[in-house]
Each structure stands twice: as C-alpha cells, then as structure tokens.
Design a protein around this nucleic acid. Structure first.
Lengths: 363, 363
DNA sequence: TTGAAAGCGCTAACAG
DNA sequence: CTGTTAGCGCTTTCAA
C-alpha cells in the first residue's frame, strides 16, 4: 500500500485566500463570525485547492473523532445467516452519515477478541459505541463499561448489572409474542405450543414470557392441563435444525397440539418440515406463527409464514440517534406496541419498538 | 455523549519510567534499539498506567491510519437479504484484525452518497479501500480511482477501464457455472435451461458465459436446436420473484425442458415453486442447480438444492490481504478451480477463487 | 543506545 | 471580526 500524496493544508488555503489560518478554520467549521466577502474568498480557495481537513490533526486538539464503533459480538454463525445485523447496520449507517460520523466495525470471534475490543474502546479512538451482545453471560458489556465510553446496546442486556442501568433499544419481544399467541387463540386453537429460542438471550426469554402471559390468562378458555402446560414448551435455539428437533419432541409429547408459536422464523421453518414429514397439514391441523419476518424466507416457505415483524433498520437508526443526541426524536420513539400490555420488561432507559403481526398462510 | 476522561500520555509514561519520550515511543513501537533493562522498565510503566497510544497524534506524524475503508455500494435491498456481504465482512475483519487495522464501513444509498464516499477516501482518512461495486455502470470505481487510494475490488469490475487494470478478488463464476451445467449433462439431461442473474453485474454475465461454454460444446450430444438454443436462456435478476417469472416464461416457451441452471439459489427457489405449482417433479422431471450455497435456504428448500458453493469469507480475507500486503500468501492463492477451463475471464490482476459443486436432492 | 528538539495540521484562547 | 500564538500527543531526525 503506497503513501497518499500530500494534500493541501489549512496553511495553503489561508495563503491562497490571503487570510490567517484561524479564519479558514472558522469558515470550514461553519463560518460563524466571519464576514461574508472574506468567507466567500476562503470557500473559493478551499474549492480550488480541493482542501479536505485532516481529521487526525483535528481530533488531536478537539478530542473528538466523529466516529462510532459498532461492536458485534457473536461467536455463532447465526449472525451471518440472517439479515438481522445487516439491516441494523444499514439503519445505523444512515443515521451516522447524516451526522457526518464514521462507522468503525468491530466484529469479535470468541472471547479472545474481547480484550482487543476493550482496549480499542478504552483507547479513546471513537466517541461512542453501539454494542450487540446477545448472551446473558457475556463479559463484554462489563469490559466496555470499564472502558468508559458512552454506549448504547442493541437488544435488552441481560447481564447482571454492576454498571448502572444500560441504555438500549429493543423490539417489543414480549408484546409481539403476546400478539402472536392471541392470534392463535383467536383462530380457535387451544393447544398452543411454544418452541423457544436460545434462552441465554433476552429476546428468547422475553418471547417466552409473552407466550406465558397469554397462556397464563387461561386464554384458551378450555379444559384442564392447557394454560401454561409445561409440556407445550420445548426449548430450542433459533436454528432450523433446533426447530426440527424441538418439533419432533413436541409431537412425541403432545400429538394433539394444534398450534405452534416458534421463537423465530428459522425455528418455524424447521417445525414446518417436521409437520410435513409427519403428514400434518399447516394450518389445518397445526397453525404455525414465527417471529422476525425474515425475508425472503418467511414469504417463500411452504406455506408462507405468518409471523411477527420487527423494524430492524429503525432499531439501528434509533441506537445511533440515542448515542449521538442522548435522545431519540419524539416521532421515532415508538413507545406504542401493537399490544396493550406493558412495554418495558426491564429496568433502565430502554427504548422498545413495536412489532406487527404479518398474516400469511401458516396461521 | 460526554467527553472521555483524559488518558495517560507518552510523557506520563516517560516520567514514570524515568526515561525520555523518545525511548518510550521506541519501546511501544517494537522496542528496537532499546536495551533490555530500560525497555522492561518502560513496559512496566505502560502497564501500570494503562497507557494506550493516541492514534490521532500518531497518524498526524506518520500519515498512516491503520484503517481500511470497506465500501459497499448497493442501492438494492438484495444486499441485506443474503448473507453474502456479512460473510465477506467477516473474512475482511479477521484479516484486518490480525494486522491491527481498523475497519471503517461505508454503506452507500444511491448516487447521492458517492460524492460523500469519494470525499472521505480522498481525505486520506484511511490507508486503503475495499470496494464492492456490483453494477457495470457504477460511477463509484472511477471516483475512487480519482481519490488516489489503494483499492481492491470485490468481484470482477465490469466498468470500462480508464484507470488501468483494477485489482480484484472474485469467485470462479464462469468455471462454477460450467461445473453445474456439466453435472446436469452427466445426469443425462439434454434440454438444459439457464435463468440468468441481473446482467448488469459481472457475476451474472460470467455465469451465463460458463453455461454457454458447455452448451456451445454441444455437450448434450443430442438432436438439433439444443446446444446454445436461445429459447433456453431466460433473463432474470437474482431474486425469488424474478426466478418465478423466468421459470414461467421458460415453461411456456419450452415445456420440454428437463434441467435448469439458476444463476443463484434465490432464483432457483423461485423456479422450484413454479415447478411444484405446475405439478412437475424435481429432480425427476426437471433437475435444478443453483449457485451460492446460501444457507440455510439451500439446505431447507424442498427438495434441498444442488448448488455451486463459493468460499465467500475467504474472498474477504484475500481482499484484505491483497490490500495490506500487495500479495496473497501462496497457500491462499486458490488459483485452481474445480474445473479445467480457464480461470480468468478478465484482464488485470484478478484473484479467482475456486468453487465447489454441492450435491443435494434437486439434481 | 538514549535524549533533545522540531514539527505533523489543526483549534481555541486571547489580543487587537 | 480577524490575527497571533500556544499547544494537542506523537514520531523522528540529529547530537551526544
């Protein structure tokens, strides 16, 4: 990699415009307190020379970087198999770009990388961090807190709090789950099962809680052994293979099941396969609802999947906005889920985005 | 976002270790030319103070940044719907990390962003750029060339060259396509169709060329109107919906088709749906081969998809390595595709990675 | 081998 | 309103 050619400096622009460096600096940074004719001369000089400020020099004195780190800590392949992070990144990118901030991407592979990330953040190279840490026992949040960098989390952090209440943005997992289950109830289903996600992630826990909220209501309004029947909850892990396994176990335990709420679309897909294999019709025999609205999967499945959609890109935008401004614009606060229940499952300044039920053929 | 607390400087470390700033700097940067007892004292001081070099100050004098921009120019949603870029990013990230470089992610939304990206790159904020520009008519490569930053492209650039031969890394799209079609031939299929990708992307063009390579050979060894029959080629766009449309058109034109090579897995999925809908069995009536091995889609489809796999993460690693070193390690050069044909379809220093046929149930 | 000193390009007081 | 000046924290000659 060769060196870049030397670019014009403030000095050069100042000389060309016949003013001092300070004046050029003022113009470049918004132009306040510079009289128009002068400012115009400076702007022309900037354009003629193709001057671009040296960010390193600027950071050195301002101690700001106009850069934000995005930390994605995910040992599993799952991350790269669903568009979740890509969409999130896109939202983040849009917001950062509109505020002239740069996005520094930090991907971690296992714990060895944690120290590296912590060191980077502690090094004061960025103005803040947006962190995705999906696992309840993840040590990263603690390390990041110690680094003393302003941070917003993606998804409700589940770690035990030694650090005050973390700021985060999440989907209304619990409310979305309630909506899904109530939909199944409204279809007249009475033996509604849940295939959970990986329960070391708060999203899985929250969706399970939402399921229980409704089942505990006795929503099925039916016979005994139904509401909250533990046999109807099978632990899985957000993967299609896990979904298959869980669905088999479920059918063995409760062959009379007539509806399944899967913790995500991939799990639902696995369940669909097993149901087909066993000759059960969807939705006639068993109705299936997923979560995520992962496209094109959810549309292309057979039958197309009824599922709970979350606005992932918006989550990303809000995370960035929260970090940059310390607040999200009111029109984007989105504190109104499509469900009457409580919005926040957790303490702390969390921003919870609403979810929407997307009806397709599977339920 | 609050200011970060002030961190220890070289000066502080020097004072603590009782040496000059210059000596500390030497130790921090590898320690060459510093006698052991001294160096050890310095290292201890660094550890005790938790010193981390100020990258801005360092860049200001060295004019290096230890940072690389990754530019993903994609106006379409497709990018975020398949794991292609995520995998590529992971490979890039691994390589950069192992060389202590940072990854600055630049996502562009339409042409308005091009100027911004060009300005950023020209601003000398990064040491190089890794660019994904999928469209033949994309102006971005030209802008980036003008910015004068060392650049490696992901995928064979298709733009008309005013800039010398670009460095790039790509999959062996043409060879992979040949392998796919030859596989269909070996199955005894004689009326082999191709559903193309979006032909403004080189990957689609190259796969079509590979298809033609084999069909032009008269590989079907059969009757008239077969090899290179234009009616067997239907233009599509890499999407499932496009795949459906193309498959319908194909069946209308050539109801006797007995094999389909789809430009990617999503297209194949669309084709599969239409075939099922028309009551045609796969692979008995029509064999189907995809491209990408996009998981979990390719595994979960019905029937599971025979497809051409490319090692996307490795492409990412090689791009980064090429940018950083100007060369890829020999064991990773991967200049041997699983196909005897020519590897490079394009002029210029391109690195072409081999592909592999993954046999599943669809062909 | 080590230290002293001179900036890298910029912003931010402070004067004028 | 504009210019002068003093660094930000680091690397890198150049001497010692």
């Amino acid at each position: 990699m060769s060196e870049a050619v030397s670019r014009p400096t403030l000095e050069a622009v100042a000389a060309r415009a016949g003013v001092s460096r300070a004046t050029v600096s003022r113009v470049v940074n918004g132009g306040y307190g510079v009289r128009e004719p002068l400012a115009e001369r400076v702007r022309r000089a900037v354009a003629e020379l193709g001057y671009v400020p040296n960010q390193a020099a600027r950071s050195l004195v301002t101690r700001r970087h106009d850069a934000v780190a995005v930390v994605i800590a995910e040992p599993e392949t799952r991350v790269f198999t669903d568009p979740f992070f890509a969409l999130q990144l896109r939202g983040i990118s849009k917001e950062l770009t509109s505020h002239d901030n740069q996005l520094v991407l930090l991907l971690t592979e296992g714990r060895d990388d944690h120290a590296r990330v912590a060191r980077y953040l502690a090094g004061g190279h960025v103005d803040g961090a947006l962190v995705f840490s999906l696992h309840l026992d993840d040590p990263l949040p603690g390390l990041i807190h110690d680094a003393g960098v302003p941070t917003v989390f993606g998804g409700r952090p589940g770690w035990r709090d030694r650090t005050g209440t973390p700021v985060y943005v999440d989907s209304d997992n619990r409310g979305g789950a309630r909506t899904a289950v109530r939909h199944l109830v409204s279809l007249g289903r009475t033996r509604i099962a849940h295939l959970t996600g990986a329960l070391d992630q708060t999203s899985a826990v929250d969706r399970l809680d939402g399921y229980r909220d409704v089942m505990g209501e006795g929503a099925g309004a039916g016979g005994p052994g139904r509401a909250g029947d533990p046999a109807l909850v099978v632990e899985s892990d957000f993967t299609p293979a896990g979904g298959e396994r869980a669905m088999r176990e479920l059918l063995d335990r409760r062959p009379d099941v007539d509806a399944v709420f899967a913790a995500n679309d991939l799990t639902a897909l696995g369940a669909l396969r097993v149901l087909r294999e066993r000759g059960l019709r969807v939705p006639e025999d068993v109705a299936v609802v997923g979560f995520d609205d992962m496209l094109p999967l959810a549309e292309q499945s057979d039958p197309p999947l009824t599922t709970v959609r979350q606005d992932i890109e918006r989550m990303g935008r809000l995370m960035a906005r929260l970090l940059l401004h310390g607040t999200a614009a009111p029109d984007d606060a989105g504190q109104a889920p499509d469900d009457a229940g409580p919005v926040a499952d957790a303490p702390g300044p969390g921003l919870i985005l609403p979810t929407t039920l997307i009806r397709r053929a599977s339920a």
